[in-house]
Design a binder for these strands. Structure first.
Lengths: 339, 339
DNA sequence: ATAACATCTTGATACGTTTCAAACCCCGGT
DNA sequence: ACCGGGGTTTGAAACGTATCAAGATGTTAT
């Protein structure tokens, strides 16, 4: 298959390359007759514009990237959906990259996207990553932090008030009369994790007799939740917590699954469980999972809007750090059956 | 921020652009002393190679694309994970695009990737899409169909034997003594859907008294499953099926959720439910979901391998259409409780 | 001392596109 | 008959990089 470029089209149509380019970019400036000829040539040759050359000439791309720590976490998938929608409205394509919770992969992608000259970056990360983003911004690549509030005022971000979310979760458990509460999550170096624990701690600290145990886990996956469940099941019943606040829904789901099916521990009677994020599967879980709901699609929409703002020339007028308030969604995993 | 290219680096380091380029691509050919100076200049200027120019020069990119109908279906996310892993091993980057079940978006992405001159395409689609892939192949862009077997011998694909899967599901239900079986899925224009139904039908047709009802749905989402559940609940109990085979796990999960929580219909006692794909959340569902398991990561791995093969020059030696055999994973949604 | 050669460096060229300035053509107005 | 001018068309230049052929420098063998 011979390479077919604008030049081949031009020859076949009997016009100059300039005219073909005009036809492609400013169709109004070329006469109907030549337009016709050019279009015919394009069809015949199956010409598709070479993006590399186009970008090179224009000095910019029309792509943004969305870096996500874990595609298989439905929370990020839901956000991705929102991102795609809004990006399409802005005529931007989205390059989704999966860092797989690996810092090295994350850095590699950051570098790669820079080489691609993407217009901007949407970054959801568990690692503290702002230092890198500063560097990128200096090089002209704007970014929006997703799910984690920027610590610097000029780092735009879209996030949930995780401290408030943590408070809500803990308050909910306390109100149900639970007192020996375990927080399952980690590492605490992750801001979102620390904040949620922080919120929970502040509420429990104020209560008369609540206690807060922290069970640190390295990853926030279903498998990890199961592992913690086995850990709890191995304890003497009196030493088990009577409520668990899991730092995300995946852990909570794994936990419930293993507790109930693997060890016959009842949820919520023996241990109440609340998660975080309210992913789509929380509702249809073994025991429908109580959760702290963060907006999903809206999250994505806002992130793109912020990024587009940032990509513009004018200095920002609206506040760049959007913080959503989470909502408590109580379900069977904390509430006794209603009947 | 002034644009910084290879030229700026060269000036700062006091060498020619050719040398800098050599340093980047054939480090061995440049003297230690200049290497040092160049590296220093790169660091100082924060130089990152311009991918557009690089691609333009080389005439090819180092990227493959993975088009998926629905990022928020964990089945595709799991495959994506496998794809990323294997692609990384081949030094390829993966551009994940979400067609959102829209043919228009699908076409737009196909066009875009062609413009990007990606090395190859991984396409998971519900639409019949092979005609387009043929055109692409003629233009030098190889592709691998994911989840759907190629109908032409030269269209590589990675798929599951869906007819066999359908048979397994139906046989399982019949063995449990169920006879009024409903298949929930659609549209039948989708090959995977038709095959699964086909398999189920063939088994039920051979049985003494099994009947197969088809409940057609437009989408294969949790929400759609719920809708079907409401439909079934509205029927007189005698007219309800005693078993449901859902064309994927999402539908099955939504169905169970609404049947049990919304209408007090028992699963599996009143209606047994089996899904398809065995996504991660099937196991931790309200009623752990029986499912037909297709390989996940392995699927992604194989797809990339096939694509890489295809990208090579030599004609293929190994068979290009991999068909995996599915496995029945029985769980509580069809089996009576064991205790 | 010179030739032959290896090592390192350079400048020019091409990749496929867009865009700018100039050229062209055809008309209507003077 | 000439000029001005809009609408079309053209050719050339540039974008940032890799590579090739050739130049420069230094080294070894004769």
């Amino acid at each position: 298959m011979a390479r077919v470029g604008i030049r081949e089209v031009a020859t076949l149509a009997g016009v100059s390359v300039g005219t073909v380019s005009h036809y492609l970019n400013h169709p109004s400036r070329v006469s109907p007759e030549k337009s016709e000829r050019i279009q015919r040539a394009i069809d015949k040759l199956g010409f598709v514009r070479n993006n590399a050359a186009w970008q090179l000439r224009l000095g910019r791309s029309t792509t943004i990237a969305y870096i996500v720590p874990d595609v298989s976490n439905p929370f990020f998938a839901a956000i991705a959906e929102g991102v795609e929608q809004r990006a399409a409205a802005h005529d931007l394509s989205v390059f989704i990259a999966n860092s797989n919770r690996s810092r090295a992969r994350e850095d590699a992608y950051l570098e790669m996207f820079q080489a691609q000259r993407v217009q901007g970056l949407l970054v959801a990360s568990h690692e503290p990553i702002e230092d890198r983003l500063i560097t990128l911004r200096q090089r002209g690549v704007p970014s929006v932090l997703v799910g984690q509030r920027g610590t610097f005022a000029d780092q735009p971000s879209v996030s949930v008030d995780d401290v408030a979310g943590g408070r809500m979760a803990a308050a909910h458990l306390l109100e149900l009369g639970r007192s020996r509460i375990a927080f399952v999550g980690g590492p605490l170096g992750i801001r979102q994790v620390a904040d949620r624990l922080d919120g929970a701690g502040s509420v429990i600290g104020q209560s008369a007799e609540g206690t807060l145990e922290v069970i640190n886990v390295a990853h926030r996956t279903i498998a990890e939740g199961r592992a913690v469940a086995r850990l709890l099941a191995a304890r003497r019943p009196q030493r088990r917590p009577d409520a668990v606040f899991a730092v995300n829904d995946l852990i909570a789901l794994g936990l419930i699954q293993e507790l109930v099916l693997g060890h016959g521990i009842r949820v919520p009677e023996d241990i109440a469980v609340i998660g975080y994020d309210d992913i789509e599967f929380a509702e249809s879980s073994l025991i429908p999972l109580s959760s702290i709901r963060a907006p999903h699609e809206e999250f994505g929409h806002t992130a793109v809007d912020l990024l587009v703002d940032e990509m513009g020339e004018e200095p920002r007028d609206s506040p760049a750090q959007m913080v959503f308030q989470p909502v408590l969604v109580p379900r069977a995993s904390t509430l006794a059956a209603a009947d």
